Simulated scan of single mutants.
Amino acid sequence: MVLREVPIEQVGRSLGRSEVIGLLFRLTVFGAVTYFTMKWMVDALDPTRKQKLNAQKQAEKLMKQIGVKNVKLSEYEMSIAAHLVDPLTMQITWRDIAGQDEVITELKETVILPVQKRHLFHGSRLLQPPKGVLLYGPPGCGKTLIAKATAKEAGFRFINLQPSTLTDKWYGESQKLTAAVFSLAVKLQPCLIFIDEIDSFLRNRSSSDHEATAMMKAQFMSLWDGLDTDHDCQVIVMGATNRPQDLDSAIMRRMPTRFHINQPCQVQREQILRLILDNERVDSDVDLGEVSRETEGFSGSDLREACRDAALFCVRDYAHSQDSDRESIRAITQSDLQRAISKMKKSKLAGAHVLLHAALG
Score class of each variant (00 low, 15 high):
2 V>E: 06
11 V>E: 09
16 G>I: 10
16 G>Y: 08
18 S>I: 10
21 I>M: 12
23 L>T: 09
30 F>H: 08
33 V>R: 12
34 T>M: 13
35 Y>M: 14
39 K>Y: 11
44 A>L: 15
45 L>M: 15
46 D>M: 11
49 R>T: 13
50 K>Q: 15
51 Q>R: 14
59 A>Q: 12
60 E>D: 13
64 K>I: 10
72 K>D: 06
74 S>M: 06
74 S>K: 04
81 A>C: 04
89 T>Q: 15
94 W>K: 14
95 R>W: 02
97 I>D: 05
98 A>L: 14
104 I>G: 03
109 E>T: 12
117 K>S: 01
124 S>D: 04
127 L>Q: 09
128 Q>S: 11
130 P>H: 08
131 K>P: 04
131 K>N: 09
133 V>W: 07
138 P>A: 11
139 P>L: 04
143 K>E: 02
148 K>C: 01
153 E>Q: 08
155 G>Q: 05
155 G>H: 04
155 G>V: 01
159 I>C: 00
173 E>R: 09
176 K>V: 03
188 L>N: 04
189 Q>T: 07
190 P>V: 09
194 F>T: 04
195 I>N: 02
197 E>D: 09
200 S>H: 02
202 L>W: 04
206 S>P: 09
206 S>A: 13
207 S>G: 14
211 E>D: 14
211 E>V: 14
213 T>M: 15
223 L>M: 15
229 T>H: 13
230 D>R: 13
235 V>K: 10
238 M>Y: 03
242 N>I: 05
242 N>P: 03
245 Q>A: 13
246 D>F: 13
254 R>V: 15
255 M>P: 06
255 M>W: 07
256 P>M: 12
258 R>M: 01
261 I>G: 00
266 Q>W: 02
267 V>F: 10
268 Q>D: 12
271 Q>A: 14
277 L>D: 01
277 L>C: 05
278 D>I: 00
283 D>A: 11
286 V>Q: 06
288 L>Y: 07
290 E>Q: 11
293 R>Y: 06
296 E>N: 14
297 G>N: 11
305 E>G: 03
308 R>I: 02
310 A>P: 02
312 L>A: 07
318 Y>S: 05
321 S>G: 08
322 Q>D: 13
323 D>G: 00
345 K>E: 04
347 S>N: 12
348 K>P: 01
351 G>M: 14
353 H>W: 02
355 L>W: 02
359 A>R: 12
359 A>G: 03
